[in-house]
């Protein structure tokens, strides 16, 4: 089953919230993981691990560094489901 952009954003927001303690409504498409959400590399890898599990996708390490914003991640995950 493919997830919509909205579903991926909502699921990602839950994962980020669990990891950082930020409210889910702070996890917006335009937010930068590092600059806005203060997520370090280890936390980012934790979020990726949970996201792979939740959405049934594979996000190779070399692609993770290109995921600057939440929107980048949503686009990547939605595309990777295809």
């Amino acid at each position: 089953m493919a997830y919509t952009d909205q579903e991926v954003l909502a699921g990602l927001a839950e994962i980020v919230s669990e990891e950082t303690g930020l409210p889910t409504d702070a996890v917006l498409l335009e937010k930068s993981f590092t600059d806005d959400l203060d997520i370090d590399s280890l936390s980012m890898m934790t979020i990726v691990t949970h996201a792979e599990d939740k959405f049934g996708v594979r996000i190779p390490d070399e692609d993770v560094k290109n995921l600057t914003t939440v929107g980048d991640a949503v686009t990547y995950i939605t595309g990777a489901q295809a």
Binding site: L42, M45, T46, T49, E52, D53, R58
Partner: peptide, 10 residues
């Protein structure tokens, strides 16, 4: 191994 959490060692 892909499911191992990165925070496991610390």
């Amino acid at each position: 191994a892909r499911r191992m959490l990165p925070m496991t060692v610390p």
